[in-house]
Simulated scan of single mutants.
Amino acid sequence: MNAKSTARIAVRTLVATACLVPLLISPTRGQDDIADVPSEKYQLKDSALEYHVIGGGGETSPAKGYKVLIVLPGGDGSADFLPFVKRIYQHALSDEYLVVQLVAHPWKRNQKIIWPTQKNSVPGMKLSTEEFLAAALDEVAERVKVDKRHVYALGWSSGGPAVYAAALDKKTPLTGAFVAMSVFKPRFLPPLDLAKGRDFYLWHSPDDRVCPYRMARDAEEQLRENGADVKLETYPGGHGWRGNVFGALRGGVYWLEEQTQQRPQK
Protein backbone atom coordinates (compact mmCIF):
# COMPACT_ATOMS: atom_id res chain seq x y z
CA MET A 1 0.00 0.00 0.00
CA ASN A 2 1.19 3.52 -0.80
CA ALA A 3 2.41 5.25 2.37
CA LYS A 4 0.13 8.15 1.59
CA SER A 5 -2.86 5.90 2.23
CA THR A 6 -2.17 6.14 5.96
CA ALA A 7 -3.39 9.72 5.91
CA ARG A 8 -6.49 10.18 7.98
CA ILE A 9 -9.77 11.60 6.72
CA ALA A 10 -11.70 13.90 9.05
CA VAL A 11 -15.42 13.24 8.99
CA ARG A 12 -18.09 15.75 9.94
CA THR A 13 -21.66 14.47 10.12
CA LEU A 14 -24.70 16.64 9.55
CA VAL A 15 -27.91 14.97 10.70
CA ALA A 16 -30.91 15.73 8.52
CA THR A 17 -34.42 14.41 7.99
CA ALA A 18 -34.58 10.85 6.61
CA CYS A 19 -30.80 10.60 6.51
CA LEU A 20 -30.62 12.48 3.23
CA VAL A 21 -28.04 15.17 3.95
CA PRO A 22 -25.37 13.85 6.31
CA LEU A 23 -21.65 13.33 6.03
CA LEU A 24 -19.33 15.94 4.69
CA ILE A 25 -15.68 15.03 4.35
CA SER A 26 -12.86 17.54 4.42
CA PRO A 27 -9.16 16.64 4.26
CA THR A 28 -7.08 17.33 7.34
CA ARG A 29 -4.13 18.37 5.20
CA GLY A 30 -3.32 19.90 1.86
CA GLN A 31 -3.70 18.22 -1.48
CA ASP A 32 -0.05 17.70 -2.38
CA ASP A 33 -0.53 13.94 -2.16
CA ILE A 34 -3.06 13.96 -5.01
CA ALA A 35 -1.46 16.67 -7.14
CA ASP A 36 -0.45 14.10 -9.76
CA VAL A 37 -3.84 12.35 -9.92
CA PRO A 38 -5.30 13.26 -13.33
CA SER A 39 -8.85 14.56 -13.47
CA GLU A 40 -11.02 16.45 -15.91
CA LYS A 41 -14.25 18.34 -15.38
CA TYR A 42 -17.08 17.90 -17.89
CA GLN A 43 -20.58 19.20 -18.42
CA LEU A 44 -23.16 16.75 -19.69
CA LYS A 45 -24.24 17.56 -23.24
CA ASP A 46 -27.28 19.86 -23.45
CA SER A 47 -27.42 20.03 -19.67
CA ALA A 48 -26.17 21.93 -16.63
CA LEU A 49 -25.10 18.68 -15.00
CA GLU A 50 -21.42 18.37 -14.07
CA TYR A 51 -19.17 15.38 -13.58
CA HIS A 52 -15.45 14.69 -13.12
CA VAL A 53 -13.40 11.89 -14.66
CA ILE A 54 -10.44 10.79 -12.54
CA GLY A 55 -7.62 8.58 -13.77
CA GLY A 56 -6.36 7.58 -17.17
CA GLY A 57 -3.93 9.94 -18.79
CA GLY A 58 -1.34 7.24 -19.41
CA GLU A 59 0.23 6.38 -22.73
CA THR A 60 -1.67 3.10 -22.92
CA SER A 61 -5.09 1.96 -21.76
CA PRO A 62 -6.20 -1.53 -20.67
CA ALA A 63 -6.68 -3.88 -23.61
CA LYS A 64 -10.28 -4.65 -22.60
CA GLY A 65 -11.00 -1.04 -21.76
CA TYR A 66 -11.18 0.79 -18.47
CA LYS A 67 -13.19 -0.54 -15.58
CA VAL A 68 -15.36 2.25 -14.19
CA LEU A 69 -16.43 3.25 -10.69
CA ILE A 70 -19.18 5.87 -10.72
CA VAL A 71 -19.32 7.82 -7.46
CA LEU A 72 -22.33 9.59 -5.93
CA PRO A 73 -20.97 11.32 -2.83
CA GLY A 74 -22.94 11.76 0.36
CA GLY A 75 -23.63 15.04 2.08
CA ASP A 76 -24.56 17.69 -0.45
CA GLY A 77 -23.07 15.67 -3.31
CA SER A 78 -20.96 18.63 -4.40
CA ALA A 79 -17.66 18.90 -6.24
CA ASP A 80 -16.03 19.59 -2.86
CA PHE A 81 -15.69 15.81 -2.52
CA LEU A 82 -13.25 15.66 -5.43
CA PRO A 83 -10.09 15.41 -3.24
CA PHE A 84 -11.58 12.48 -1.31
CA VAL A 85 -12.70 10.77 -4.50
CA LYS A 86 -9.22 11.24 -5.97
CA ARG A 87 -7.85 9.45 -2.92
CA ILE A 88 -10.29 6.60 -3.55
CA TYR A 89 -8.79 6.29 -7.02
CA GLN A 90 -5.24 6.58 -5.67
CA HIS A 91 -5.48 4.17 -2.73
CA ALA A 92 -8.39 1.78 -3.40
CA LEU A 93 -8.31 1.06 -7.14
CA SER A 94 -5.93 -0.29 -9.74
CA ASP A 95 -4.72 1.64 -12.79
CA GLU A 96 -7.31 -0.28 -14.80
CA TYR A 97 -10.01 2.03 -13.41
CA LEU A 98 -11.50 5.36 -14.25
CA VAL A 99 -13.59 7.07 -11.59
CA VAL A 100 -16.55 9.17 -12.66
CA GLN A 101 -17.71 11.49 -9.89
CA LEU A 102 -21.18 12.89 -10.49
CA VAL A 103 -22.00 16.28 -8.97
CA ALA A 104 -25.46 16.73 -7.48
CA HIS A 105 -27.50 19.44 -9.17
CA PRO A 106 -30.09 21.59 -7.33
CA TRP A 107 -33.17 21.71 -9.53
CA LYS A 108 -34.95 24.06 -7.12
CA ARG A 109 -34.20 26.17 -4.07
CA ASN A 110 -33.96 24.42 -0.71
CA GLN A 111 -33.98 21.01 -2.39
CA LYS A 112 -33.98 18.33 0.30
CA ILE A 113 -33.43 15.31 -1.98
CA ILE A 114 -29.78 15.50 -2.97
CA TRP A 115 -29.92 12.79 -5.66
CA PRO A 116 -33.50 12.74 -7.04
CA THR A 117 -34.57 9.60 -8.86
CA GLN A 118 -37.40 8.55 -11.12
CA LYS A 119 -39.50 7.41 -8.16
CA ASN A 120 -38.34 10.12 -5.75
CA SER A 121 -38.19 13.22 -7.93
CA VAL A 122 -38.19 16.96 -7.35
CA PRO A 123 -40.07 19.72 -9.21
CA GLY A 124 -38.24 20.99 -12.27
CA MET A 125 -36.00 17.94 -12.57
CA LYS A 126 -34.91 17.47 -16.18
CA LEU A 127 -32.92 14.28 -15.67
CA SER A 128 -33.16 11.68 -12.94
CA THR A 129 -29.96 10.54 -11.28
CA GLU A 130 -30.29 7.19 -13.07
CA GLU A 131 -30.42 9.01 -16.42
CA PHE A 132 -27.52 11.29 -15.43
CA LEU A 133 -25.40 8.26 -14.52
CA ALA A 134 -26.12 6.47 -17.80
CA ALA A 135 -25.55 9.59 -19.91
CA ALA A 136 -22.24 10.41 -18.21
CA LEU A 137 -21.00 6.87 -18.80
CA ASP A 138 -22.03 7.08 -22.47
CA GLU A 139 -19.98 10.25 -22.84
CA VAL A 140 -16.96 8.67 -21.17
CA ALA A 141 -17.28 5.66 -23.48
CA GLU A 142 -17.16 8.02 -26.47
CA ARG A 143 -13.73 9.24 -25.35
CA VAL A 144 -12.10 6.03 -24.13
CA LYS A 145 -12.71 2.31 -24.33
CA VAL A 146 -14.78 1.06 -21.38
CA ASP A 147 -14.95 -2.53 -20.10
CA LYS A 148 -18.71 -2.74 -19.75
CA ARG A 149 -18.48 -5.94 -17.70
CA HIS A 150 -16.99 -3.90 -14.88
CA VAL A 151 -19.11 -0.80 -14.32
CA TYR A 152 -19.86 -0.22 -10.65
CA ALA A 153 -21.42 2.57 -8.62
CA LEU A 154 -20.44 3.75 -5.15
CA GLY A 155 -22.82 5.84 -3.08
CA TRP A 156 -22.70 6.67 0.58
CA SER A 157 -25.24 8.29 2.89
CA SER A 158 -27.36 10.62 0.71
CA GLY A 159 -25.92 9.01 -2.42
CA GLY A 160 -26.99 5.49 -1.46
CA PRO A 161 -30.70 5.59 -2.40
CA ALA A 162 -29.91 6.69 -5.96
CA VAL A 163 -27.31 3.92 -6.31
CA TYR A 164 -29.91 1.36 -5.24
CA ALA A 165 -32.33 2.85 -7.80
CA ALA A 166 -29.77 2.84 -10.60
CA ALA A 167 -28.69 -0.72 -9.85
CA LEU A 168 -32.32 -1.85 -10.11
CA ASP A 169 -32.91 0.02 -13.37
CA LYS A 170 -32.17 -2.28 -16.30
CA LYS A 171 -31.59 0.77 -18.51
CA THR A 172 -28.47 1.66 -16.55
CA PRO A 173 -25.19 -0.10 -17.36
CA LEU A 174 -24.25 -1.06 -13.80
CA THR A 175 -23.00 -4.54 -13.02
CA GLY A 176 -22.66 -3.94 -9.28
CA ALA A 177 -23.30 -1.45 -6.50
CA PHE A 178 -21.42 -0.46 -3.34
CA VAL A 179 -23.73 1.25 -0.83
CA ALA A 180 -22.28 2.57 2.42
CA MET A 181 -24.01 3.90 5.54
CA SER A 182 -27.28 4.69 3.77
CA VAL A 183 -31.02 4.08 3.92
CA PHE A 184 -33.07 1.46 2.11
CA LYS A 185 -36.65 2.44 1.24
CA PRO A 186 -38.18 0.08 -1.34
CA ARG A 187 -41.20 2.34 -1.95
CA PHE A 188 -38.84 4.77 -3.70
CA LEU A 189 -37.16 2.04 -5.77
CA PRO A 190 -38.01 0.05 -8.89
CA PRO A 191 -39.52 -3.41 -8.23
CA LEU A 192 -37.05 -5.46 -6.21
CA ASP A 193 -37.41 -8.46 -8.51
CA LEU A 194 -35.17 -6.50 -10.89
CA ALA A 195 -32.32 -7.25 -8.47
CA LYS A 196 -31.87 -10.71 -9.98
CA GLY A 197 -28.37 -11.07 -11.40
CA ARG A 198 -27.10 -7.84 -9.79
CA ASP A 199 -24.47 -7.55 -7.05
CA PHE A 200 -24.67 -5.36 -3.96
CA TYR A 201 -21.89 -4.75 -1.45
CA LEU A 202 -23.20 -3.04 1.70
CA TRP A 203 -20.99 -1.35 4.31
CA HIS A 204 -22.69 -0.16 7.49
CA SER A 205 -22.02 0.32 11.17
CA PRO A 206 -24.36 -1.29 13.73
CA ASP A 207 -23.66 1.83 15.83
CA ASP A 208 -25.07 4.16 13.16
CA ARG A 209 -27.58 6.60 14.68
CA VAL A 210 -28.10 8.58 11.48
CA CYS A 211 -28.98 5.87 8.96
CA PRO A 212 -30.33 2.91 10.97
CA TYR A 213 -28.38 -0.32 10.60
CA ARG A 214 -31.65 -2.28 10.34
CA MET A 215 -32.09 -0.78 6.87
CA ALA A 216 -28.86 -2.42 5.71
CA ARG A 217 -30.09 -5.74 7.09
CA ASP A 218 -33.43 -5.21 5.32
CA ALA A 219 -31.59 -4.50 2.06
CA GLU A 220 -29.46 -7.62 2.45
CA GLU A 221 -32.48 -9.82 3.08
CA GLN A 222 -34.85 -8.39 0.49
CA LEU A 223 -32.35 -8.05 -2.34
CA ARG A 224 -31.11 -11.59 -1.76
CA GLU A 225 -34.69 -12.90 -1.72
CA ASN A 226 -35.09 -11.32 -5.15
CA GLY A 227 -32.08 -13.03 -6.68
CA ALA A 228 -29.23 -10.59 -6.03
CA ASP A 229 -25.83 -11.53 -4.65
CA VAL A 230 -25.37 -9.44 -1.52
CA LYS A 231 -22.57 -9.03 1.01
CA LEU A 232 -23.05 -6.92 4.14
CA GLU A 233 -19.90 -5.88 5.97
CA THR A 234 -19.94 -4.01 9.26
CA TYR A 235 -17.55 -1.62 10.97
CA PRO A 236 -17.54 -0.04 14.45
CA GLY A 237 -17.99 3.56 15.43
CA GLY A 238 -21.20 4.83 13.87
CA HIS A 239 -22.01 6.89 10.80
CA GLY A 240 -19.07 8.02 8.70
CA TRP A 241 -15.93 6.82 6.95
CA ARG A 242 -14.01 5.22 9.81
CA GLY A 243 -11.04 2.95 10.31
CA ASN A 244 -9.16 1.65 7.27
CA VAL A 245 -11.35 3.55 4.80
CA PHE A 246 -9.45 2.81 1.61
CA GLY A 247 -8.91 -0.81 2.61
CA ALA A 248 -12.67 -1.17 3.07
CA LEU A 249 -13.34 0.45 -0.29
CA ARG A 250 -10.75 -1.75 -1.98
CA GLY A 251 -12.28 -4.86 -0.44
CA GLY A 252 -15.78 -3.95 -1.57
CA VAL A 253 -14.76 -3.25 -5.15
CA TYR A 254 -12.73 -6.46 -5.24
CA TRP A 255 -15.79 -8.43 -4.09
CA LEU A 256 -17.87 -6.88 -6.87
CA GLU A 257 -15.19 -7.77 -9.41
CA GLU A 258 -15.17 -11.37 -8.18
CA GLN A 259 -18.93 -11.69 -8.68
CA THR A 260 -18.63 -10.31 -12.20
CA GLN A 261 -15.82 -12.72 -13.07
CA GLN A 262 -17.87 -15.69 -11.92
CA ARG A 263 -20.65 -14.93 -14.39
CA PRO A 264 -20.40 -16.15 -17.97
CA GLN A 265 -19.78 -13.42 -20.51
CA LYS A 266 -22.74 -12.51 -22.67
Rank of each mutant, 00 (worst) to 15 (best):
H239Y: 07
G247E: 13
R242I: 09
A228M: 04
L223F: 06
G251S: 14
Y235H: 15
W255I: 03
L232G: 08
Q222Y: 10
W241L: 13
R224V: 05
Y254P: 08
V245A: 05
T234Y: 01
Y254G: 15
G227V: 10
W255M: 06
W241S: 06
E225Y: 09
G243D: 03
L223P: 03
R250V: 05
R250C: 04
L223W: 06
R250L: 11
V230D: 02
E221W: 14
Y235P: 03
L223E: 01
E221V: 14
R224D: 10
K231V: 14
L256G: 08
V253S: 01
G252K: 00
V245R: 00
G251Q: 13
G238T: 09
F246M: 04
V253I: 13
G240F: 02
N244V: 13
T234H: 05
W241K: 07
E233D: 15
G247L: 08
N226Q: 11
G251P: 05
V245G: 02
G237D: 00
E233N: 13
R242S: 04
G238Y: 03
A248F: 04
G238N: 06
V245W: 02
V230N: 01
T234F: 00
R224W: 10
G238K: 01
G237H: 03
E225F: 06
H239S: 09
R250F: 02
E220C: 11
L223C: 06
